[in-house]
Amino acid sequence: MADVLAPARPRPAAVLRHARTYLRLAAAWVRSSYSYRLSFWLMVLSSFAVNAIEFLAVVFIFANVPDLGGFSLREVAFLYGTTGVPMALANLLVGSVEDLGRSIRTGTLDQMLVRPVPLLVQVCSDRFALRRVGRLGQAVAVLVWAGLFVDWSPAAVLLTLVALLAGTAIFFGIFVGFAAIQFWTADAAEVANAFTYGGSSLTQYPLTIYPRELVAGLTFLVPVAFVNWYPALLVLDRPEASGYPGWLGLASPVVAALVLALAGLVWRLGVRHYRSTGS
């Protein structure tokens, strides 16, 4: 059983092959859902609108206050966009992992286990929902608007792009790691929401509005603060606001790697547990 727990060997060729399999499986789902064209676009619109409403609430807040935790509407919009885009990307790519419990209950998981493709690739591409691009579109729109007011330098552009990628990886890990709880309790899907969508909601606002203990938790325990908060402080040129050293803003890729490794381990433990209980 030792090999079940061995750390993932990131052989580039294998990773590429799995990514290709993922894309082909996802493409099949896109083709089939797009055959109901009207319904598909309605769902995209809905996904866009739900998130647009959420941002509208932020705008309404600023009708009542001049600043929130010391940050202006434009700065909050930048935070919103820099967590919204990674969340939307992760949600689009691996959001289906939330349905793990259903796959366990219906026996679909057993069917996946007898196929020659890694389980994670199958679970994440299962029922791939392109309609989630609605959320992505909304987040990109907010980010672009907020970006109009940022004083861009080449370094800031690079930092933002790196943060968006690292943030996507962090949310990716959080989606997978917390969904794996369902290997133990198939009905507890909602717990993960607190960390995935909760993590993204938390980081839509400047972390200065939360108590120190909570910010420490978001830095060291569930490190969503690295998705956007620390990098954004550098981009917005406000490195002092967090109370932590400014260089944390450069650490997102490292944190992302850690989160991915940990999520991979939890996932493997979950699969191992499932394969020794069969239910």
Binding site: D3, G107, D110, V114, P116, P118
Partner: peptide, 17 residues
């Protein structure tokens, strides 16, 4: 241990699912 390799050589039908 070699589940995915084996998967290419076997077919499985679970009658009720």
């Amino acid at each position: 241990r070699r589940r995915t390799d084996l998967a290419r050589r076997m077919g499985v039908v679970f009658g009720q699912r």
